[in-house]
Amino acid sequence: MNKIIFSIAIFMLSTAILSSCQQEKKLPIYGERHTETVRDAAGIEKIDTVYQTIPNWAFLNQDSVLTTNKLTDGKIYVTDFFFTSCTTICPTMHRNLMTVYNEFKSNPDVMFVSHTIDFKYDKPSVLKKYAQKLGVDVNKWQFLYGSKDSVYTLAEKNYLVAVGEDSAAKDGYIHQGYLVLVDKDRRIRGAYDGTKEDQVAQLKKDIPVLLAEYKK
């Protein structure tokens, strides 16, 4: 009898410990950060952490409409860098990103933004055709065209994705296949290799976690 009571007690204790350990899961915040001393409403000095954020941007989308960060402000979005004539990693990236899109297409808080790095050939009309053929010519998934300077700086300095022209590469450009997850405050919260199915699966799991942070 004693033994039974003892084992029940052990069981309840371990359940209590396990359940108390469950913390709210949060995604990490990537990029540079620094601290600033600010005064709160009551005039008391506080130290605040300032995170790296995506700056304002303005590009032409697949409909040749000037599109700015206003479209993604207040939303979380997944961004990537590609070009339409790419035969190496881009088709795989977009095949995988398409599965993410399909899972979240009915959620108004999630968007997709693909930047072309082929500033010579991928004009909006080319992007339009590409989007149509991929089967996602919608407002929710923007295909953006911009000058080499603006797109490459945004990629490398802000989204932390390496891109570049390379005459030795088969298609003329090289780039990393990251799908970058950005939160509603324009901070980078994740980067997933779009060519790897397990990382894309992780992205699908992380999007609801990020959305949950804002549901308070």
Partner: peptide
């Protein structure tokens, strides 16, 4: 081939 034509030869939209 797989990048465009897919692991199971399913293609990609109307691109491949």
């Amino acid at each position: 081939c797989q990048n465009c034509h897919g692991e199971n030869g399913e293609g990609l939209g109307q691109l491949a």
